[in-house]
């Protein structure tokens, strides 16, 4: 069980609680979306709730709490915030372009020609039903 220092002001405890709960709830909503949506290109969106506001709220809560508990300004959490904000779009764009190529290569008619290939590139023949990849 957590031990709270008795000198911690009440408003800090309340604000920290709200921010931590909000961050955790947003992350949970994001991963529930990851489970429930039925298409890879829709499933890319919900986890970003966790990587933006989810982790942002928890980092704010942590900054506030430690700044009051340690009685000095604790802001090194900003490093994590900057890093996550920069890396998430990079990885997801890489992943989606890989997925686009893979779907195109098996002849999925619903995807456009991936970038880097000429617009009139010959579309591969769709695989027969029995040869559809499972992973």
């Amino acid at each position: 069980m957590m031990e709270v220092s008795p000198t911690l002001p009440a408003w800090v405890a309340i604000v920290t609680s709200i921010l931590v709960l909000l961050g955790a709830a947003l992350t949970l909503i994001g991963t529930i979306g990851l489970v429930r949506l039925n298409n890879f290109y829709s499933r890319v969106h919900p986890p970003t709730l966790g990587t933006t506001l989810g982790i942002g709220c928890v980092l704010l809560a942590s900054m506030l709490y430690f700044s009051v508990v340690k009685q000095r300004l604790v802001v090194h959490e900003v490093l994590i915030a900057i890093f996550v904000t920069i890396t998430t779009p990079v990885t997801l764009m890489l992943l989606v372009s890989a997925a686009l190529r893979r779907d195109w290569a098996i002849g999925d008619p619903s995807v456009p020609v991936p970038p880097g290939l000429p617009e009139e590139a010959e579309r591969p023949e769709p695989l027969p039903e029995s040869d559809q990849p499972t992973s």
């Binding site: 990851l34 996550v84 990885t91």
Partner: peptide, 15 residues
Amino acid sequence: RAQDRVLALDAFYVC
């Protein structure tokens, strides 16, 4: 498919 697993791994480490 494999891209779903990689996406889930990304969400998993953020959690």
